[in-house]
Nucleic acid binder design. Structure first.
Lengths: 360, 360
DNA sequence: AATAGCATTGAGACCGGTCTCTTTTTGCAT
DNA sequence: ATGCAAAAAGAGACCGGTCTCAATGCTATT
């Protein structure tokens, strides 16, 4: 009569053992797939398990083994195609190796990142892949190592930490993009980033706490310095975090007495926003202004014109990071390795020589 | 001398208790935040915990409480903006309620979905949100209920299961889109879906196992039937799973003696692919052909022309699903509820009256 | 001063697995 | 038959928390 609609207690090894008339240890051996058991007994246990619909409790298993089979990933923003693609790379590799992935968003904020890390460590993840929001604050990351959880940094490196890191070659990528614009005849090149700061302007590139952002800015500046361009730093603008802000940044640049003739977007989200801004302003690309975006996002090929982009093999970067972490999880102690993934430039239609009128 | 570089054993309540000179139970009370403890003792324990850098083992905690604080989510493909946006909605709500989210991809395959569900139940997730790949196979989903884990279906419903479901109003959405095209003068409207089947053609819409896909197809057909259009079903094509296949589907449609004058894409990925195909073919939208895509993806606003879309409030759908699940997790037994989220049409520039030449 | 009564703290079982160690069976050689 | 090593099965501790229940201490009441 009191058929339990929701069987409150789940079936355990002990239950199966009882049903199969063997000891808990024996049942555990066949159910857990370890130790030696005779074929006859194995059959019995398996039959009993099937009849009872036994499902192993991974939690209990993890508790005793100390391994959870979970890899924790902390990224800035999964919405961003960059991260979601990277996460897929990580997940694919992880799944193949029998690991699961828990993803946590930091929103690029240090506190959120800290608590995400705490949380994941609490869940006893076997390893961690983190995109550090800032490269100058690393106490919580040192904690990770102290606890003994392998860590791989992603997209941004903190050399002082002494852990594996997988990053793009941001300096080089920025230089290539800049050089392309210089070669095309541009002399006033703006670099627009979504980095959140007090000022829209850049004082000193060394003060940028995010290594990826810093390297790109330095790449842009270095290439221009080599070309003998003076006011390069003036054209580096930060804070394009949403559409209105991006509109503001772009407009302020274009209203300048000497407006830039080319724009470089620090990521595909910024790129999309800039494109929309320019569209709103009724500017034609590349006639009125040229642009290059980081990341070969899908929208960049369907615009008119299609956008020239810095191609980052993000999926591969994610894979690489996961592979590194997993080999460290299995293997003993590998030397710390910094993997830098080369990036390329895909030339499409958004770059042209600056028009005379602009190139006063 | 033998300073352990990697402290193999983590600090436990027992360690803290010992350091604080109190019983394990007392230390556990303050560390676990339950029961009553005097302020004095609390201080001691907290101090000891801090000194030892105690970190609770959530696994052990989950084991005894039976709650893992994790919500499992099984989606078709996180790459798809539809799912990634939904997942963010789910995650946001979950985080606010103190839950974590584990995401599993099914790739829209039943077997993968089954094992994902098994895996998540093994991890003892507190609840599950699943996007069932097929609505005609539900043994594994019944298992979930039998185990006593609350389940919410997302995007697709299986009424026979008798569980909560949050879906879009796909029938209505398809009808609205179709009506818009009819109103604009189109009489040959193609619906292109990424659904993977043997045949590119549709025999009987009732044979479609995915309820969302089915409803959309039925919406398209119904609206045309009401308008007295005869060969509507002929223009429903499936299998646009990647760019080459999409190219094929579109080309075969356009090479028909009576080619469609308008295309409806079943999701934003298919939409993007169709757009690229049309671009490759040198067709001008909406002059040569009109199109509507499902989902207001970001790329749809930067194309020339911008794409008219069926706007699905996916983020809200995700939120709603998570809210439902969580209230079921907390509350007692609510009645089964099917939430249908209204969708709208955002008219942009990709629909126009069919040109005379096409409308022979 | 004795004792009821409440606030704290302590002891120890328990969750559901894994795993070591011990005991019992089995198989085969002598 | 008998011995003995190897194989199979059983007992029970353990992982790191939670939680029940008992014990202790202190204040308040009469």
């Amino acid at each position: 009569m009191e058929e339990p609609l929701t069987p409150k207690r789940s079936v355990t090894v002990a239950d199966v053992a009882r049903a199969a008339n063997v000891s808990k240890a024996t049942a555990a051996r066949v159910l857990g797939g370890y130790g030696v058991v005779s074929d006859k007994v194995r059959e019995q246990v398996l039959a009993a398990a099937a009849a009872l619909e036994y499902r192993p409790n991974e939690l209990a298993r993890s508790m005793t083994t100390g391994k959870s089979g979970i890899i924790g990933v902390v990224v800035g923003d999964i919405e961003n195609a960059f991260f979601s693609l990277a996460v897929r790379g990580i997940s694919d590799v992880a799944r193949m190796a029998g690991f699961n992935v828990i993803i946590a968003n930091s929103g690029e904020e240090l506190d959120a990142e800290k608590s995400a890390v705490d949380l994941l460590i609490g869940k006893r993840v076997d390893g961690l892949i983190v995109t550090p929001a800032r490269c100058d604050r690393m106490e919580h990351l040192q904690d990770i190592r102290r606890v003994g959880v392998p860590l791989v940094l992603f997209d941004r490196n903190i050399p002082a930490l002494g852990v594996d890191a997988v990053t793009g070659d941001d300096l080089d990528a920025a230089m290539i993009a800049t050089r392309h614009l210089l070669d095309t005849g541009h002399r006033r090149i703006a670099y627009i980033s979504a980095m959140d700061t007090e000022s829209e302007f850049l004082d000193d590139s060394r003060s940028i706490s995010n290594s990826a952002v810093r390297e790109r800015v330095e790449g842009v500046l270095k290439e221009q310095a080599d070309a003998g361009i003076a006011k390069a730093r003036y054209y580096v603008r930060l804070g394009a975090t949403d559409q209105p802000k991006t509109d503001g940044v772009v407009k302020s640049l274009l209203q300048d007495a000497a407006p830039p003739t080319a724009l470089i977007a620090s990521d595909s989200l910024v790129g999309l926003r800039i494109f929309k801004t320019l569209q709103t302003l009724g500017l034609s690309i590349p006639r009125d202004i040229s642009m290059i975006s980081f990341l070969d996002a899908d929208w960049t090929t369907v615009t008119t014109p299609p956008i020239t982009v810095v191609d980052q093999p993000v999926y591969e970067m994610g894979k690489k990071a996961a592979e590194r972490l997993i080999s460290r999880l299995n293997g003993k102690d590998l030397p710390v390795e910094r993997t830098v993934i080369k990036t390329g430039l895909i030339k499409r239609g958004s770059v042209a020589s600056p028009s005379r009128s602009n190139d006063q």
